[in-house]
Simulated scan of single mutants.
Amino acid sequence: MKKKLVLVLCSAMMAMSLVACGGSDKPEEKPQEATKQTMKDGTYEVDTKDDKDGGAKVSITVKDGKITEAKYNEFTKEGNKRENKEYNAQMKEVAKTSPETFEVEFENQVVSAQNHEIDGVTGATGSTAQAKQLFKKAIENAEAGKTDKETIEIKK
Rank of each mutant, 00 (worst) to 15 (best):
K57W: 06
E100K: 12
K156Q: 13
G23A: 14
N141H: 06
T97V: 14
K146E: 15
A89L: 01
F75T: 05
R82G: 07
K52R: 08
K49T: 09
K63W: 03
D64F: 12
T76I: 04
S17T: 13
T122P: 08
D148L: 02
A12Q: 04
K77Y: 00
N141K: 15
T125L: 08
D50K: 13
S59D: 09
K57T: 08
A131K: 01
T76E: 01
D41C: 02
V121R: 07
K57I: 08
D64W: 11
T128L: 05
T48Y: 07
T68C: 01
G22D: 11
T125K: 12
E143Y: 11
Q133N: 07
Y72P: 00
N141R: 11
V62P: 05
E153I: 07
S11F: 15
A89R: 02
E83I: 00
M1T: 09
G123N: 13
T125C: 08
D47S: 14
P99M: 15
N88H: 00
S98R: 10
K132A: 03
I152R: 04
E105I: 14
K81Y: 09
T128W: 01
A142S: 06
E74W: 07
V8F: 14
K155H: 05
M13T: 12
N108S: 11
E45F: 05
G79A: 15
K156W: 13
N115L: 03
N80Q: 13
E140V: 04
G145K: 01
A131T: 06
I139F: 09
K66H: 05
A138E: 02
G23I: 12
A95W: 12
A131Q: 02
K40M: 06
G123P: 03
F102E: 10
T38P: 01
